[in-house]
Simulated assay, not measured.
Amino acid sequence: MPHTARQLTKIGVFYDGNYFAAVSRFYKYQHRQHAWISIRGLHEFIRCRVAKSERVDYHNCQIIDAHYFRGRFSAQQCVEKGEHVLFHERVLDDILMRANVTAHHLPMNAMGKEKGIDVWLALEAFELSTYKHFDVVVLVAGDSDYIPLARKLKTLGIRVMVLGWQISYDGPNGEPKGTTPSQMLLTEVSYPVLMSDLIDGAASAEGADELEAVRSLFQPREDQSESASTDGDPPLWKPGKIAAQKRGYGFVEPGNLFFFYGALVDADFEDLHEGMEVTFQEGLGRDSQPAAVKVRTEQIGQ
């Protein structure tokens, strides 16, 4: 059946977990963003970019499968390393679970290196692509080892998008560190996207929707999610209603305050509708402008 007749554009996302973790740590600790990359925000960006690249409607672009591959320390190794390693791994599991991302792990070797995880990613991506008939496969990766996978997927008529980052920073002892995506990999795929250029403004987003998705790639900073109140009291929940709903963001009355879908406390974004009664907390958004930093459909007193 032709793709246009199917209407739905099916997207499969595959994370090289070690690569993504290194990039996310960079934005948390070295970049001026000082925030983790939001997986939900990244998925929203992926849908926007695929819709533009495939020239299809955004609402018909759906991520139907997402998988995260990374090596993992054994329980005993975690105990020996200390520093709450087990706790942090559980936090990551919770994040992936909430974002509907399936985690795949292989044990670290004695030197603390992951071995075979990229091969497993490639095999799973190819098998799932043949079984679920993805239209677009998105690789959050930068290694040239994935070139054979990209070539194999193209023989199936599947377009491949790569999200890569070019980052550099100084290590603890002043040594240069960073990562650069394989240029051969970027050349091989249908849709190469250099995320670092988009985030830093060196490349332009493709349309207003994608621009907002780029701005929403990061988890809100704690100092920006507090209420504008300065008296130390917890932020108040105020009654309001949905004034407008766009692709992944909306506005709340009174005040016509912006909110991103990540601000929702007890509902999915698709469950909202204009005029719907909500309660919200007012604070400062990512541009230090007044915004609804938390929104819930549960009414005051319930």
Rank of each mutant, 00 (worst) to 15 (best):
L153R: 02
L153Y: 05
K154E: 00
K154C: 15
K154V: 01
T155G: 01
L156R: 08
L156I: 04
I158P: 05
R159H: 13
V160D: 08
V160T: 10
M161S: 13
M161W: 08
V162F: 07
L163W: 05
W165P: 04
W165L: 11
W165I: 07
Q166W: 14
I167D: 06
I167R: 13
S168L: 13
Y169C: 09
Y169H: 14
Y169P: 02
G171T: 14
G171R: 07
G171E: 07
G171F: 03
P172K: 10
N173C: 12
N173V: 12
N173G: 09
G178F: 09
G178A: 12
G178P: 04
T180H: 13
P181A: 00
P181L: 03
Q183L: 15
Q183H: 15
M184D: 14
L186C: 07
L186T: 03
E188G: 01
V189I: 02
S190R: 10
P192T: 02
P192N: 06
P192Y: 05
P192G: 00
M195Y: 08
S196N: 08
S196L: 00
S196D: 04
S196Q: 08
L198A: 06
L198N: 06
I199F: 14
I199H: 04
D200N: 10
D200H: 10
G201C: 13
G201T: 08
A202C: 10
A202R: 14
A203Y: 14
